[in-house]
């Protein structure tokens, strides 16, 4: 149980009490001065000093903490942050602390994490049963069979089964970058049966040895949904060859992955909607209509923020005719569990 002075409400009461005492003291001293029981007007100096001290103390213990709490509430209301309100150091009153605790329970990370993870798997599964995806893939197999090239049929089938296995099995949160990249390449390989040489994947590493970087842990199904978005919304509609670049760079504490395509790009209003979804915290997307698009990106962004904190996540920039960039910021970690 925190001390009573911990709450802003208590501090306001203390301030009112101090001011009341100060006023009574001033009136009493003024009365005594008028009755000539006090001869020196120095008592005025005492009152001014006391007022200044009260003002100074209330500025630091009341005004500034109140401003901070108000700001956090505004950010919570606009969706910028969830956890700052729970971690508020100087809450308004005890009831507010209780309310925050209830809120924390509602925002229970594990539950939301599981929901998000389930949705990520669902989105991936949805692709598997997506008729277009399945038909195109089967069409590819059929074509290859017609040409009697049994090796390529086998390769394609293997790629498909590896992709299914990776997506459905492995229930842990984090996988190595190598595993995630392998799955992404696998997915790209499957898509190449449909698009042929029209799409190309380029992967580059900056700043550290490739084999070192590949050991870093990232959330499962981080890259594949983004690559899928790039292909479906960026490269599929492009006339001519489309390139997809995955650039991995590291610093002392971060892992930056940029997925970039040179496809058709997004319209300004679509981009703004997407950026708003990514910059504010909301789990509305879980129940949202699938046709609204961009669910996969929001899902990846939210899972990263839930796992590592609100300073990590996705950013999207795009321009019609240039393409779309998705930058992923993650902590650099080789451990099984998310870094503290």
């Amino acid at each position: 149980m925190a001390r009573r002075t911990y709450y802003l409400e208590t501090r306001v009461v203390l301030l009112v009490l101090s001011l009341t005492i100060l006023i009574i003291l001033t009136l009493m001293l003024a009365l005594l001065y008028r009755q000539d029981r006090i001869t020196s007007p120095l008592f005025l100096l005492l009152i001014v000093s006391a007022t200044l001290i009260v003002g100074f103390v209330s500025y630091y213990t009341l005004y500034l903490p109140y401003g901070r709490t108000k700001h956090i509430m505004q950010l919570f209301a606009s969706g910028y942050t969830f956890h700052a309100i729970v971690d508020d150091k100087i809450p308004l009153n005890k009831e507010m602390v209780d309310l925050n605790k209830t809120l924390e329970t509602l925002l229970n990370t594990d539950q939301i994490m599981n929901a998000s993870k389930r949705q990520a798997q669902f989105l991936a599964l949805q692709n598997q049963i997506n008729p277009h995806f399945l038909y195109n893939t089967l069409e590819g197999i059929r074509s290859e069979a017609l040409l009697a090239g049994l090796d390529s049929v086998a390769t394609m089938t293997e790629a498909l089964s590896t992709f299914f296995r990776y997506t459905i099995s492995n229930v842990e949160n984090l996988v190595s970058l190598q595993q995630e990249l392998e799955n992404t390449k696998n997915y790209f390989f499957i898509q190449q049966f449909r698009f042929g040489n029209r799409i190309k994947l380029h992967i580059s590493f900056e700043g550290e040895q490739e084999n070192e970087v590949l050991q870093y842990r990232i959330p499962k199904l981080t890259l594949q949904p983004i690559v899928e978005n790039c292909i479906v919304h960026g490269l599929e509609c492009k006339v001519g060859v489309g390139n997809l670049y995955i650039r991995v760079e590291t610093s002392e504490s971060r892992l930056f992955i940029t997925v970039r395509d040179d496809g058709v790009g997004m319209q300004e209003d679509v981009l703004q909607q997407m950026q708003k979804k990514l910059s504010t915290r909301s789990f509305d997307y879980v129940k949202r209509d699938e046709h609204q698009g961009g669910i996969a990106l929001v899902n990846v962004n939210n899972r990263i923020k839930l796992l590592f904190g609100e300073q990590y996540g996705l950013t999207v920039t795009s321009c019609v005719g240039v393409g779309t960039d998705v930058a992923i910021s993650l902590p650099r970690s080789k451990g099984e569990e998310p870094p503290a």
């Binding site: 900056e206 700043g207 550290e208 590291t250 610093s251 002392e252 971060r254 300073q311 990590y312």
Partner: peptide, 13 residues
């Protein structure tokens, strides 16, 4: 490994 001198994350004013 590259040393990061400045990083701004979702800075808004």
């Amino acid at each position: 490994m590259r040393e990061e001198v400045f990083r701004l994350e979702q800075v808004s004013i």
